[in-house]
């Protein structure tokens, strides 16, 4: 399903979270789709199940997935209602990035083009499966 770098400076559970978030964002994992069980994933990736458990727990805390007792973990229905804190954080990061971009000479149209590009990629990802 995906590769992990066990020797990376980045904790494995973070790598896992990033991968799963990516797959949700790109629509590879659909809302309410069941995630592989800890056991399966552990076997596939040869990763300590506790690490996978931890990644799932974090993802659930961040609202990307939800779990049902005895059934497993599922992709959360949508990312339409992100939390206020999350929005604020994203706003901060964008502001910083914009500041940096402007400093490096990005124009308004450059940034608009990038925005356009991202939107198109996401559309494509949704329709591809």
């Amino acid at each position: 399903m995906f590769e992990l770098d066990v020797r990376s400076r980045k904790p494995i559970y973070e790598q896992l979270m990033d991968k799963i978030k990516e797959m949700i964002l790109y629509g590879i994992l659909k809302p309410d789709e069941q995630l592989p069980s800890v056991r399966t994933l552990s076997g596939q990736l040869t990763v300590n199940p506790n690490t996978i458990q931890k990644a799932y727990r974090e993802l659930e805390r961040e609202g990307y997935i939800y779990s049902q007792a005895g059934k497993g973990s599922f992709v959360a229905p949508s990312q339409q209602q992100p939390g206020a804190a999350q929005l604020a954080e994203m706003k901060e990061r964008l502001l910083k990035l914009f500041a940096e971009a402007i400093y490096l000479g990005f124009t308004k149209s450059d940034i608009e083009k990038l925005y356009q590009q991202t939107m198109e990629e996401q559309e494509r990802g949704k329709s591809s499966d």
């Binding site: 020797r7 800890v38 552990s42 076997g43 040869t46 300590n48 199940p49 690490t51 931890k54």
Partner: peptide
């Protein structure tokens, strides 16, 4: 080992004189 840990919450205590041998196993 991972299967047992995942299935039954088996606890594993493992020793090594070399970190590389076990760093990808332990939490």
């Amino acid at each position: 080992l991972f299967q047992e840990v995942a299935d039954r919450e088996m606890t594993v205590v493992i020793s090594s004189h070399n970190l590389r041998e076990i760093e990808d196993m332990c939490d």
